[in-house]
Design a protein around this nucleic acid. Sequence first.
DNA 1: GGCACTTGCTAATACGTATTAGGGAGTGCT
DNA 2: AGCACTCCCTAATACGTATTAGCAAGTGCC
Lengths: 366, 366
Amino acid sequence: MAPPERRRRTTQRDIARRAGVSQATVSLVISGGAAGSQIAEPTRRAVLAAAEELGYAANVAARSLKGGRNRLLGLYTFESVFPTDQRDFYYPFLLGVEEETARQGYDLLLFCSGGGPSGAPDSGRSIYADGANRLKIADGCVLLGRNVRRAELSALAREDFPFVFVGRREVDGARLSYVAADYVAATAALVAELVRLGHRRILYLRALEDSEPTWDREQGYRRGLAEAGLPLDETLVRRLADPAELTAGQLAEWTAGLGVTALLVEPTEGNRLTAALAAMTGTGRIRFPEDCSLALLGDPPSWTPESRNWTRFSLPRARMAGEAVRLLVELLDQDTPEPLRLTVPCAFVPGDSIGPVPAGGRRRAP
Amino acid sequence: MAPPERRRRTTQRDIARRAGVSQATVSLVISGGAAGSQIAEPTRRAVLAAAEELGYAANVAARSLKGGRNRLLGLYTFESVFPTDQRDFYYPFLLGVEEETARQGYDLLLFCSGGGPSGAPDSGRSIYADGANRLKIADGCVLLGRNVRRAELSALAREDFPFVFVGRREVDGARLSYVAADYVAATAALVAELVRLGHRRILYLRALEDSEPTWDREQGYRRGLAEAGLPLDETLVRRLADPAELTAGQLAEWTAGLGVTALLVEPTEGNRLTAALAAMTGTGRIRFPEDCSLALLGDPPSWTPESRNWTRFSLPRARMAGEAVRLLVELLDQDTPEPLRLTVPCAFVPGDSIGPVPAGGRRRAP
DNA sequence: GGCACTTGCTAATACGTATTAGGGAGTGCT
DNA sequence: AGCACTCCCTAATACGTATTAGCAAGTGCC
């Protein structure tokens, strides 16, 4: 039994019947740019009139089916897009992506069906959800996320699906497209600034795991020292497994024992690092920058208004995201797709947590 | 001359060839829910394996052309999604939509291709962009926005495309689905609260134009008065063409001339209203609630931390958005689509701008 | 009149998927 | 053997548009 004849939309055939022409003619009149000029003026007007009367609106699905493209750009994040505690982290990216996508005349597809209810950490989120690569429903995709699934990323790279990562990411056996922040230069600049203030013993507190951003920061640290003509002391590169390790006592050890006068700290994902810092300064035992200078190698997470204005550099998140979209569209327009890459500078935020070296070398030899 | 053989996406036919079956079989295996069970297990596995190898992903356009579903929900806003000055207004909606969409196992399609670069006010944004209804690329759509284009909305309603509006919207000749905030009850409650504090002459400052939210607030105002047994004085309902009209002098006129002791003010879209209020209180000539009580009938726009904590009610934006998605999915699962509606309560925010009636009728007869 | 050329239109087809009618092979029963 | 029936699969078609090849009529030229 046929369904109760749902109201059908006006199609070109309806117009054709009404105007006494063929569907092809209708198509030519309505959307035939160059080829449309071969239609005689009276016919053209008749068609347009009929279209008007019937309230015609082209069917996008059919259009993009024919064209092979559907003017959709995807945005896939390896973590949930809107985790309650990290909104501020993702929001600028989203903003930048949305804006540039709009400017390019595309619509934006947010892949959120992956994990269960958002909030669960890394809850089974996957590109290859039910065996198929869902991303492909878009023409191309912008990727984003700190906890990248390497296996998936390289699988994706092997398929020839156009995508751009926001942030530098490398996988074996393939060249990816990405928009990277210049962590190297930004870190080196912070080192230079500290050196200018007289610091010579600068401790670099890096993340435990290796990842591109961490590599870049470490490289920037080395470069900064080299450019200042300072020797690299490997004992001043420390890995921080747990922000809780960062205590007043620990800091005193570094300053007194190692002669450290400044710290470069890599922000962690949660807000536990800033909490640890707040705990140190809250008790009044440690004051930045009076007792020791401290700068963050990036944006502090969960930024709250009342939080301290740390000296740091800041990722141009919205801009990175926008550039990623631009690159993606460029990738789509290329006929021989080859990876595109772009590096954008970070912004230096002066803040108030660095200053001159504390007088007298401080407690070094008590 | 044929184009240089642009890389084509894998289709069901490719899979069919690879697995030695027909395209129909592939379709049945991949997306045939009930009818898919009639495929023998070995065949099914062969098809799935081939699909896996070739990295198949269904073509959304083709699917929705055929009338099938593609597990995409759209979000269309009549204004740009991320206008720089109204982020905080839209963000909670976006959040709610995203979260519930994810929970329902759909992906989210953000329609942003409409206007030019976002930021331009109402920049030619339209559902029917180039003669086509782009929304239909999704299975259904959530609509949002203050400045609704009525003509488009009723055109959309005439087509049988499933959509839910966030906010009560009515058009002639069709019943829409929506999730509304209970402005009536919220406004009436504010009136009741003011009455409890002793106020008898409450001025209602409404928007110039008519719109559903304004109607509802006005109705709530009347109901609140009626329930308190107070007479309705039509001269106490004022239309505010321009927030700049709200000056200390004007207010003095109302209090002294009309005996008004409390104001109910409808927030405007920009932040000009709050600016006008800030100007009034900034000079120190007027103090709320000492000189006059004041409550906002909704959230102040462009909420900034240092802004005054006005007594008001607040829209449960994220929740409204989430419910809209829920309703939409329900709508999709129905086989005889009939409009669904839902009303959710607003939250009362006590704030600090209302208080008892100023002693002695104040300057009424000097 | 025959030929080349232009103008204005149409028939046919492709895009990728979902769906339906139906076919071939096998099995069980009389 | 003949029939009924089940199981798996395929051929065919529709969805609405864009595009191309080509047809028919008209025009100009020799």
